[in-house]
Design a protein around this nucleic acid. Structure first.
Length: 876
DNA sequence: AGATTCGCCTAG
DNA sequence: TAAGCTAGGCGAATCT
């Protein structure tokens, strides 16, 4: 029966048919807007590459004999002229070479390599399922119309009948439609290219699966497991114990029957998934049990034919992201790390951060370093703990809106949700750039491969900053500076003048005189895309405002996600085009962008200075200028009844006017300088990228950049003391700030401080070896010379988990010996006793970091170390 | 003691 | 052998 509905593409792949005529079927794993899952089998798309004669443009007729020869190849299914396309050598005739199967382009007959011997080859490294989205201009949200081949219990009732509900019948129909067998989705639908269309984005009710394992430290064996399925907020819990093989089969059974789109858990990338893989190998090897029964989580049929290409089993290329056919691995640890930047990364720490009030979420009851004993003595508690650790990742993803963000990014970059989620920046950009290149007849070169180290391009300009306080400062910055420069100067690899030609209409970069075609002549692909993105962001922002006004919270949420995703995407362009390997790049592009940026900001700085105003600081696209206000005006906002309140308000008013005047004066077409904030005081100790401001407009708050306060490898006591110090300094209470600091340092010296406030935490790399151990020497020249590596090794020695990339918390025990002696912080995880810290080390660290700041007022590190005021009086 | 190197993390 | 970029601060170890 025919069926049509809206759905979101989770991920895609393809099946190569056998026999002739050649057939390749795209598999799209989708989640319908109404909640069930669908495998779409799309037929009609043919794999191809594009070729042209190498070198300067020549008439198409010169290719005749080579084309005849090419047509005699058995792998050249069809060769057709497709007209002229732009290349760096000029516009020249191109041909499309249709090939039997996508994999033959780079494997087997290796058609690309063969063609490269005599042709210039383009469009030859694009995954087939992505080709579908590019050629038919689809995004993740589509409407699909086709023939229902299978409809399971969760499929809409209308689609279920004797044929679509019968497994044997369905399996036969699916094979006929080019699929591999009975997919574990709620529906399988076959359609043609005409049955697909892009639709407006919506929020898809994805299904998530969260799991956790408890494993033996002695044998690595899985002792028990838990899983939770989240289906539109409805959750069901599952627990598994007993034989290891049964536990794994149980988990696999849930994955296959519940059919989730998202696979999550805490640290699954580096712990649970690798452990499942390792145990599946071991068990399958020993007992001839099929690894697929233990770990066949791929969204493909449980068939021998699927075990060989290993689509049934999750896999990953050396320590990279996991690939689970048809599903998306989304590690709650990585999401929390990226969005929250927590000081420490254990699940209990992150939970405490997110739900400080909710004791249940982070109570500690199991000593993970003694798992074998715990499992032997109180298995029920262990299992309960395991369940909690599967629920929390779902709560974390929910709170961080991780899935909605990926879906929004997919929507604006027109990729599958999987590409938006696990793909790279250049894949998002590819999706937009390639489809525009095809539409505008620009040949799509292959990504540059191989090691390609070139000289770094010069980046942004950073202005020197003086130590001390500056009163009443305005901060202005360029709106989307790099994208604006690319648009304004038409910067693109297709507009770069490569042959030395000169023309007055060209856009010429200020120092290296790199030239670009004028927009009037030909708009570059990148400028065109960026312009569209800027407009679409404005549209989403307007829609957000409208939705809020009408009280449509769901719509407002969606529009906010979309506008944010557009911002992320726009800001990714510069990096990709300044990289050395991207398909549409050239070293001059990135260099020109930053050149213009430096030129623009320096120009403004010198004009502002010429007008007699002091430029306090500037970094890349921002400028901090001292406002011309009365020197006597108070920096602190006086109380309502104080006489000086008027002066403060006048100073603020004058500062705002000054900021607005500057913004207006320097804003030009395509380079909008925005008045961002007004500060009543700006402070720096004299180092670039480190400053503090007391913001008075648009809201009153403190702004801190760069300082330890912002760093996740600082310790809590330093962070809090420095924050307090900044508040006092900006309030003009410098002396009190110094006294306060001295008191804190005294407390540390007297060991009166809680060790929990002294934990230092840094990320630690390593390579995970096949046997589960970690090798540090591959990534570090001298691993034992790094305190956090020593702490990580100590964790491992004590039987605690360490996975490459995670942050390791430690306390400095003795800094007098070299290298310093550190101990890992295990209080959160196993309730260990806090280590005895080295008071001198911490006192010195505090004095050093805080002394840099007080130095600006004449109090040095040594003075801070010397003790509190009372003591120093006695010293005299 | 000062310079150099490695490595983390941040600003933009 | 997969891949956004540069500028910059600072701590620890190690060198001279």
């Amino acid at each position: 029966m025919q069926w049509e509905e809206e759905m979101c593409i989770v991920s895609g792949s393809y099946q190569s048919g056998e026999g002739r005529p050649h057939r390749t079927t795209v598999e799209l794993w989708c989640r319908a807007r109404s909640g069930h899952s669908v495998t779409l089998l799309v037929n009609g798309l043919r794999p191809y590459v594009v070729i042209a004669l190498p070198g300067k443009p020549r008439p198409a007729s010169e290719a005749d004999s080579a084309l005849d020869y090419l047509r005699s190849m058995d792998w050249a299914v069809d060769v057709t002229p497709i007209g002229d396309k732009w290349t760096p050598d000029g516009e020249k005739p191109h041909w499309k070479v249709e090939v039997p199967q996508p994999w033959m382009i780079t494997n087997g007959p290796n058609i690309r390599k063969k063609l490269k011997e005599s042709w210039e080859v383009s469009s030859a490294d694009i995954l087939f399922e992505r080709r579908l989205l590019l050629d038919y201009d689809l995004g993740p949200h589509i409407s699909a119309c086709g023939e229902v081949l299978w409809a399971g219990e969760r499929a809409p009732v209308e689609t279920r009948d004797d044929d679509t509900g019968d497994r044997t019948t369905a399996a036969g129909l699916i094979a006929e439609a080019g699929g591999s067998g009975l997919y574990p989705t709620d529906m399988v639908v076959s359609c043609t290219l005409e049955g697909l269309a892009k639709v407006e984005p919506f929020r898809t009710p994805f299904v998530s699966f969260s799991f956790d394992l408890e494993t033996s430290i002695q044998s690595n064996r899985i002792l028990c497991a838990a899983a939770v399925i989240d289906r539109g907020g409805e959750r069901s819990e599952h627990t598994f114990r007993g034989e290891e093989g049964d536990i794994m089969e149980g988990l696999t059974g849930i994955v296959r029957s519940e059919d989730p789109d998202i696979i999550t858990g805490y640290n699954i990338d580096n712990f649970a998934l690798p452990r499942m893989e390792e145990r599946a190998d071991i068990l399958a090897g020993r007992s001839k049990m099929e690894a697929t029964a233990l770990f066949g989580w791929g969204r493909v049929p449980m068939l021998q034919s699927e075990a060989k290409p290993r689509r049934l089993l999750p896999s990953r290329r050396q320590n990279r992201v996991w690939n689970i056919a048809g599903r998306i691995p989304l590690d709650a640890w990585w999401q929390a790390r990226q969005t929250l930047k927590p000081q420490r990364e254990s699940l209990s720490y992150v939970s405490k951060l997110l739900w400080p009030e909710d004791e249940d979420k982070h109570k500690l009851d199991i000593d993970a370093s003694q798992m074998d004993r715990e499992w032997a003595e109180r298995p029920d508690e262990v299992l309960e703990y395991c369940v909690r650790d599967t629920i929390l990742p779902l709560d974390i993803l929910e709170r961080l809106q991780s899935v909605a963000r990926k879906e929004a990014l997919a929507s604006v970059s027109l990729t599958t949700v999987e590409t938006a989620s696990t793909g790279t920046t250049s894949q998002w950009i590819d999706s937009l750039v390639i489809r525009l290149a095809d539409r505008r007849d620009v040949a799509v070169p292959t990504t540059i491969s191989g090691p390609r180290r070139r000289d770094q391009i010069t980046g942004g300009y950073v202005h020197e900053v003086d130590a001390g306080i500056s009163p009443w400062v305005v901060v202005l910055d360029f709106k989307s500076m790099y994208p604006s420069i690319m648009i304004a100067n038409n910067i693109c690899s297709t507009t770069l003048i490569r042959d030395g030609a000169t023309n007055d209409s060209h856009s010429v970069s200020p120092t290296t005189q790199t030239r670009y075609l004028s927009k009037d002549e030909w708009t570059g692909l990148v400028p065109q895309l960026l312009e569209q993105l800027m407009q679409s962001r404005d549209k989403h922002k307007a829609a957000l405002v409208e939705a809020r006004a009408s009280g449509d919270e769901a719509e407002a949420f969606l529009q906010d996600q979309l506008q944010y995703a557009v911002k992320i995407l726009m800001n990714s362009f510069y990096g990709v085009f300044a990289s050395s390997f991207y398909r549409f790049t050239h070293p001059d592009l990135g260099a020109s962008i930053t050149e213009w940026a430096r030129h623009n900001i320096r120009g403004i700085i010198s004009q502002v200075e010429n007008d007699g105003h002091e430029v306090v600081y500037s970094d890349t696209d921002s400028i901090f200028v001292r406002a011309p206000v009365d020197k006597q005006a108070p920096i602190n906002r006086p109380d309502e009844d104080e006489e000086s309140l008027g002066e403060w308000e006048r100073a603020k008013g004058e500062t705002l006017q000054f900021g607005e005047r500057l913004a207006e004066r320097f804003t030009r077409e395509g380079a909008e300088l925005e008045f961002e904030t007004a500060l009543s005081a700006f402070f720096s100790h004299g180092a670039k990228k480190r400053y503090v401001g007391r913001v008075v407009w648009p809201r009153e708050e403190m702004l801190i950049r760069g300082y330890e306060v912002r760093r996740t490898d600082s310790f809590a006591l330093l962070t809090s003391t420095m924050t307090e110090m900044f508040e006092m300094i900006l309030a003009g209470e410098e002396w009190a700030a110094v006294e306060m600091t001295k008191a804190v340092i005294d407390d540390v010296k007297g060991r009166k401080v809680d060790a929990a406030d002294l934990v230092i935490s840094r990320s630690c790399k390593g390579t995970l070896k096949r046997n589960g151990t970690v090798d540090f020497s591959k990534v570090y020249t001298n691993p034992d010379g790094l305190p956090y590596v020593r702490a990580a090794k100590e964790r491992i020695r004590r039987g605690l988990p360490f996975t490459p990339g995670m942050k390791v918390g430690y306390i400095v025990i003795d800094a007098k010996s070299s290298p310093m002696i550190v101990e890992p912080w295990l209080v959160d995880e196993i309730g260990a006793d806090p280590p005895k810290y080295d008071p001198n080390y911490y006192a010195r660290r505090l004095a050093k970091s805080l002394g840099r700041i007080t130095e600006a007022f004449g109090w040095s590190e040594t003075e801070l170390m010397s003790g509190s005021r009372q003591q120093s009086i006695f010293d005299f």
